[in-house]
């Protein structure tokens, strides 16, 4: 089993009620796998657990990075959220827990 954490590092940023999480591959092989398997649908399935979505994915091949924009992820926005982590800084770690299908 491969997790995103095995292939990449990540950072979460906040804007209003939307979180964006950048996922950066450690190497070219990891980038190919992430680009193929870390789909917006797969990310949305995980982030549904905190009631977040929809999810939009942007590709940055020159940087071996994917940028995910996850709406409704921050409990109504930093200023009115009841969450213990209103900025969603910890959500980068949730991204890294996602399982990817094994490659042959």
């Amino acid at each position: 089993m491969t997790r995103v954490h095995d292939l990449a590092h990540a950072r979460a940023g906040d804007k209003g009620n939307t979180s964006n999480i950048v996922v950066v591959a450690y190497d070219a092989a990891g980038w190919e796998q992430l680009r193929r398997d870390l789909t917006a649908e797969r990310v949305a399935a995980t982030f549904a657990a905190i009631g977040a979505g929809p999810v939009t994915r942007y590709e940055l091949p020159r940087l071996a990075a994917l940028n995910f924009v996850i709406e409704n992820a921050l409990g109504g926005g930093v200023s009115r959220s009841l969450s213990i982590d209103p900025h969603g800084k910890s959500l980068s770690a949730l991204m890294l827990t996602i399982d990817l299908p094994d490659t042959e």
Binding site: A10, G13, D14, T18, N20, V22, R62, L63, N67
Partner: peptide, 29 residues
Amino acid sequence: RTATEQLLYEVHDPARYITPDCTLDMTGI
């Protein structure tokens, strides 16, 4: 690695990062 994380920090569409001064396109960086 540190620069890539920060480049995309709080960015939505990397081809259209809007400030009062310009609409920045990061996709060729």
